[in-house]
């Protein structure tokens, strides 16, 4: 049976930006910017390209807790340094991905990497919050620092470009990140005129961030730099044609159909689990991390 086209539901402009700490100027596409069915992706903050002036003291976000989900940071320009209370640390540069499973609870801090901060320059990032199934919310925290050169690539035909598979599977290439629920996450780096097709189950929630360039979707709709394309839960196939040199972040995943209780940095199923998370954080059960 031939796959049906997954239709575009909406092409959305970036909402007004706000600062996260003093290091990230983000457009929040969801959940507050737009109300979108994107589970298992709970939140998408997009730091569109912006130039930071040089500074000795790196900008960023100080120590804060998380529980019940994963934070995934994808660098496009600039560099971010990370430290957490489980003793993990790392720096991600353009093309790298940091996949942190907060799960039962972690403290972390994120800042511009020192050398980048001193020189200043263009900064562009995505941060996603990926929900965890209830059964995994209290699992042990972990950290996957994924370098661009470790990420498997699929080379498209006709000099169309490449697909970097961060999670899931594209054709015969498997993603680097281990996930708790089925997730497809790719960076598509397409040449002008390049074409790529994607196939996701109809019930998967699916969206694309246009990081660079301009693309035609399903032979009809045009999406520009910094826009978010949200797809309907019908059909499977998405056809992309790059109208310019383009970079796309492609997200698709099986929805986690469980209740949500969210407060600040915690994402649980029930309100009492949020109260517990607050109490545990206050009482030091997330560990300790120096500012």
């Amino acid at each position: 049976m031939e796959a049906k086209i997954k239709q575009v539901a909406a092409i959305l402009n970036p909402p007004a930006p706000h600062m996260v700490g003093d290091g990230f100027r983000v457009h929040n596409f969801f959940p507050s910017g737009y109300k979108l069915e994107m589970s298992p992706f709970y939140m998408l903050d997009y730091n569109a390209k912006i130039e930071f002036s040089p500074r000795n003291e790196p900008r960023g976000v100080g120590v804060h807790p998380h529980r019940g989900f994963e934070t995934v940071t994808i660098a496009y320009q600039g560099a971010v340094a990370h430290h957490d209370s489980a003793g993990n640390s790392g720096t991600i540069y353009p093309g790298d991905v940091q996949w942190m499973t907060a799960a039962s609870g972690i403290l972390h801090k994120e800042h511009h990497e020192e050398e980048f901060s001193k020189k200043g320059g263009i900064f562009q990032m995505v941060q996603l919050w990926v929900n965890l199934p209830a059964k995994d919310k209290m699992s042990t925290p972990k950290y996957q620092g994924i370098k661009q050169n470790e990420i498997q690539q699929f080379t498209l035909a006709d000099n169309s470009g490449i697909i970097e598979i961060i999670a899931g599977k594209y054709r015969d290439k498997k993603g680097s990140a281990n996930t708790f629920s089925p997730i497809e996450m790719y960076n598509a780096r397409l040449n002008s005129g390049g074409k790529a097709n994607f196939n996701f189950a109809a019930n998967y929630n699916t969206g694309i961030v246009v990081i660079e360039g301009k693309v035609k979707i399903n032979e009809t709709e045009i999406a520009n730099t910094n826009q978010f394309v949200h797809f309907k839960n019908e059909g499977e196939e998405i056809k992309i044609e790059a109208l310019e040199q383009s970079v796309l972040l492609i997200l698709s995943g099986e929805p986690i159909n469980e209740p949500i209780a969210a407060y600040g940095p915690f994402l649980m199923n029930k309100p009492e689990e949020i109260q517990q998370a607050i109490a545990d954080y206050n009482n030091g059960k997330f560990g300790y991390l120096d500012e």
Partner: peptide, 9 residues
């Protein structure tokens, strides 16, 4: 906070 973390983590 560090002392509490030592006790409870």
């Amino acid at each position: 906070r560090k002392d509490l973390a030592k006790k409870h983590f």
